[in-house]
Design a protein around this nucleic acid. Structure first.
Length: 811
RNA sequence: GGGAGCUUAGCUCAGCUGGUUCAGAGCAUCUGCCUUACAAGCAGAGGGUCACUGGUUCGAACCCAGUAGUUCCCACCA
């Protein structure tokens, strides 16, 4: 058979993927085999394939292809997450570009646009995963807002409410002024920011009892190391958010602070608006920081809020929900808080209240999704108490019922779980699962799965009530309040309790995900698993690394350093892209991605192709005397052992999720052992035929290699598998059962090692002596171990036997 | 401020339970080859005080302590 010199990787991908789909090779249903289940970490429904997805899903695909070939019932469930805030932000932006404001739309209209958007872009990421070769069971594709799924979310909310875990509470929350919604602590990204520390002087109220300031200190020492003249008529505080002084309720000093001892109990005036506020004392204040005096703004700082509760201070909310100053602020009304900051500093300076400004760097919270500066804000929200649920979830990981790879993440998990705080689950958005709480006109409310149910509860108190009087809560649930049900709800574990699917496939086996979402998602899935199903959701969690560019920067849209994956797949083929991603991803460490590695993958494919061309180009001759040449016999035997040794090695590596290392083993087995040694050993001379037995054995070995390699390099191996010999209609490498992994004969391996060393050293000597390969000269007479060693050594090192040389002389 | 990790060749990293795969791999570099599957290839070579300092041990890249640098996570110093 004549094979073309080159091949078309992208065409090959498409051809085989279609055939696999046609034969429904990815589909799964319960049977009597052992199951192996993976649920995909559902990408955002509006998402586009990026390196993180590619890494993550390539690993899952490798795991699932491997177990499928081991004969297990392999089930990989794909799907997408509705991604409440992220999707809503995108829809809002899309509408804005069309000139439509969200505030001009009704909830229903907005949701209509959102669903249209979802229909249009929702499937894209899944199509992209197909291009990558992911062998998901697409017939199981799920979405966190499917009808059944939504019912399950509601049911969990109602159940947890009745168990007393869910409650409504007025708390200090993280407010995203851009999305105008609350955020959980996990959705707030802290960043170090260079800012300014403003020192602001507050006028003191004249001492009422005529008691003179007895301040012994003629000067005040501040943290800047300088002394400042004692000012009996005012007190100076330090703040990075001067606009919040309009909401000040007090000034607080440490009771042990000698400098301010006499001021406690007196009053000061907020600059510009002259509100009279008390000076109080609390241990919370650091004497060393700033001036040692702290302004207290209970409405806009979590700590100040606590102080306010303790000291019964007034809460003065000076911000609107979009981050502009409210009427309560009295000044700068309608200005954005940052605009206001500039202006108030100017005015404070003009009025002599600004003492000085220092450069300062501090941590500021940003919204994970909108990147807006998060404002602490007092608000009525729905909360989920986590302490009880955390207990079994923590225990399961600590006693290794659920194993983490790498293990170091167990510490992190333990730390977070033991200090877990209540979860703010309500979001002031429209895209998501609406909170199933209904309010009667009198303000009473209930939580129920349906409005009918709610009505039957509320109407017991008020017989005049009709269902039209009931109003459902406007808020939706945090996205993660639905994703935490993913491992069982993709099998309708709650919406159709006890069904065969969930009984068979749940708990799932392996979760492959990024460490970034260990708290968002992994921990919560474990809690939901135990709480709802009374069973762990999965047995092992493999955390991949973070993909970085070759300069070590995290791949991100804003940096523009994410490669165009689809372009790369079109250019080099999915196999090469998968190779490039994997080869650079040591287990659990960050990986530095470099496009060069994809080229390396592409060269590997080329190598495979050429090995095939070599083998298929041979002319075959039946063995004349029924005897294989001793050299060929040895070569076959040696490589078979080499292959089996590699299989054992790979087995071990997979158990530890050392997938990159496993690929390196196969890579070297193919390139070095198979191509460079084995094929060279058995390669017939120019225009010479190969004996049938060696040929058959070689095809067999080649096929086994393809099986071993298939999970990593799915498309090219399928292609070669079919070109090696004629296959039946339903014979695919993807579903072929491996029969490799036999016993290893160490003697054969050692013998091979010796021969290879001899050949290498001869090549080395030839190389040092700069002998051209054409001059097949007679430098050495070696005394090999036996005939086949001699023939191999001479064949591969370019030496000739004494007989040949003397024959040459005679000519 | 607390916690975790990392530091091995020019680069990216292996090196699991201290001693025969112990100083390794892949890229990169250099040398020689268009050799009849593959120049997207073949055959070779150079290159490291295993961060630093002590300790434990017959023996340390590996265990312990400290130091420095670095990354990440958590945290209420305005």
């Amino acid at each position: 058979m004549e094979l073309s010199k080159t091949f078309d990787p992208a065409g090959l991908d498409q051809r085989w993927y279609d055939r696999w789909m046609e034969h429904k090779l990815f589909e799964s249903k319960p049977d009597n085999r052992e199951s192996y289940t993976i649920v995909i970490p559902p990408p955002n429904v509006t998402g586009m394939l990026h390196m993180g997805h590619a890494l993550n899903n390539t690993i899952q695909d490798i795991l699932i292809r491997r177990v499928r070939m081991q004969g297990k019932n392999a089930c990989w469930v794909p799907g997408t997450d509705h991604a409440s805030i992220a999707t809503e932000a995108k829809v809002v932006q899309m509408l804005r570009e069309k000139g439509i404001k969200k505030s001009d739309l009704s909830r229903e209209e907005f949701l209509k646009y959102s669903f249209e958007w979802k229909e249009k872009y929702g499937g894209i990421i899944l199509q992209q995963l197909k291009k990558l070769g992911c062998s998901c069971d697409w017939s199981r594709t799920s979405f966190t807002m499917d009808d059944d799924y939504s019912k399950a979310v509601t049911k969990v909310f109602v159940d947890l409410y009745h168990k007393g875990y869910i409650y409504r509470g007025l708390r200090m929350i993280n407010w995203d002024p851009k999305a105008k919604t609350s955020l959980s602590d996990e959705e707030v990204i802290k960043k170090e920011v260079r800012s300014k520390l403003y020192f602001i002087r507050y006028q003191l109220e004249k001492a009422s009892s005529g008691s003179q300031l007895t301040s012994k200190a003629a000067t005040l020492n501040w943290s800047d190391g300088n002394s400042h003249p004692a000012a009996p008529n005012d007190i100076t505080i330090a703040t990075v958010r001067p606009e919040t002084i309009l909401g000040d309720s007090a000034i607080c000093v440490n009771p042990k602070d000698e400098r301010y001892k006499d001021l406690v109990g007196r009053f000061a005036f907020v600059p510009l608006i002259n509100r009279r506020i008390p000076i109080i004392a609390d241990e919370y204040v650091e004497i060393e920081f700033g001036t040692g005096a702290l302004k207290v703004t209970p409405a806009h700082d979590a700590n100040d809020y606590q102080l306010g509760l303790k000291h019964h201070l007034e809460v003065i909310d000076t911000l609107n929900e979009d981050g502009t100053m409210s009427k309560t602020a009295q000044l700068y009304i309608g200005q954005d808080r940052f605009e206001c900051r500039k202006n108030i500093v100017k005015d404070l300076e003009a009025n002599g209240h600004l003492v000085k400004v220092e450069d300062y760097s501090n941590q500021i919270g940003f919204s994970e999704r909108t990147d807006a500066v998060v404002e602490p804000r007092l608000s009525l929200q729905w909360w989920c108490s986590m302490k009880e649920m955390a207990k079994p979830a923590l225990e399961a990981v600590m006693n290794e019922e659920i194993k983490f790879y790498p293990k170091k993440f167990e510490n992190l998990y333990e730390h977070w779980m033991s200090g877990i705080k209540d979860w703010c689950v309500s979001r002031q958005l429209w895209w998501g699962h609406r909170i199933p709480a209904w309010y009667a006109p009198d303000g009473s409310f209930t939580v129920a799965e349906t409005i009918e149910e709610a009505f039957s509860i509320l109407s017991t108190h008020d017989s005049h009530l009709t269902t039209h009087d009931l109003k459902q809560d406007e808020d939706v649930l945090d996205t993660w309040f639905s994703s935490w049900l993913w491992p069982f709800e993709v099998f309708h574990g709650l919406s159709s309790q006890g069904n065969e699917e969930v009984k068979y496939y749940y708990p799932t086996n392996t979760l492959v995900t990024a460490p970034e979402i260990i708290f968002f998602w992994v921990a919560r899935m474990i809690m939901a698993g135990f709480e709802v199903m009374n069973k762990k959701p999965f047995s092992e969690v493999y955390f991949t690394g973070i993909v970085r560019d070759k300069q070590g920067r995290k791949m991100s849209k804003s940096l523009g350093n994410s490669p165009d994956l689809l372009g790369l797949i079109d250019q080099y083929g999915a196999d090469a892209v998968r190779f490039g991603i994997l080869i650079s991803s040591p287990a659990g460490n960050d990986l530095l991605f470099d496009e060069k590695l994809i080229k390396q993958g592409s060269r590997f494919n080329n190598k495979l192709w050429n090995a095939l061309r070599l083998v298929k180009g041979w002319e075959i001759q039946p063995v004349t005397n029924g005897q294989l040449s001793a050299g060929n016999q040895f070569a076959i035997n040696w490589f078979e052992n080499k292959l089996n040794a590699a299989v054992a090695e790979i087995e071990k590596l997979f158990a530890e999720f050392q997938i990159s290392a496993a690929l390196k083993i196969v890579y070297s087995l193919v390139w070095d052992d198979f191509c460079s040694w084995y094929l060279e050993m058995i390669k017939p001379g120019y225009d010479q035929p190969i004996d049938q037995e060696t040929y058959d054995a070689t095809i067999e070995l080649f096929e086994q290699l393809m099986q071993l390699l298939h999970p990593f390099v799915p498309f090219m191996t399928e292609e070669i598998y079919h070109l090696l010999k004629v296959r039946g209609e339903s014979d695919f490498v993807i579903t072929s059962k491996t029969n490799i992994g036999k016993e290893i004969n160490l003697n054969v391996l050692n013998e091979g090692e010796t021969i290879l060393q001899i050949i290498s050293s001869i090549r080395d000597i030839r190389n040092r002596n700069q002998i051209k390969s054409r001059d097949r000269l007679k430098l050495f007479s070696i005394r090999p171990l036996n005939d086949y060693t001699a023939s191999l050594v001479m064949k591969l090192s370019g030496l000739r036997s004494i007989e040949e040389i003397s024959a040459d002389r005679e000519n």
